[in-house]
Amino acid sequence: MDFGFMMHYAPYFVNAAYMTVFISFFGLVLSLVLGLICVAVQMANVPVARQIVRAYVELSRNTPLLVQLYFLYFGLPKLGVSWSAETCAIVGLAFLGGSYMTEALRGGFEAVPRVQLESARVLGFSPVQTFLHVTVPQALSTAIPAVVANVIFLVKESSVVSAIALADVMYVTKDLMGQTYDTYESLTLLVITYLVILLPISIVGTVLERRFDYARR
């Protein structure tokens, strides 16, 4: 194991890690926003919009991210829409992530026992007050494990963006192996980089789950 090699090329991986985190971060934020909108639509029972959300969830969950990315990156330009690779990556990730977040959040909201809402009602809470003080805290508490799992899942999925020539960790690894033939070291750097990205997220996730587990005890 050539440590000198690894130290020498580490900076490339650091940059690549930034790329991964960058894409994942924006993809996640958009996923959550999209998820919240979809859940709101589902709960508000808007008729047509509900079916659209349903169709969206099914379509994005049953197709691979890679195909979605290729479609955006190679296909859209034919329609005159030319997005940068970063934009395609973030949009693709958000498209996929949105449906996963919708399911996670929906599970949270549906898990709030009816009795809680009734207690609030009899105590005189307005619908808005019930939503803010009773529904949301309990829904969040229930949904957090699923949301955390989705975050980790999406960060891993972002490894696919190397396919549309974004210099993320996978891309850099492949490049390095192609140039230097030092596969062991390159792959080791790969593993280390992903561990460095994902382990903290996992730990923070566990802490958050514990902090908000009041509805699950």
Partner: peptide
């Protein structure tokens, strides 16, 4: 202020 109710399931607000 008019009616108060206590239910069979002793659910308090967990948060």
């Amino acid at each position: 202020t008019k009616v108060g109710m206590v239910f069979q399931s002793y659910d308090l607000f967990p948060n």
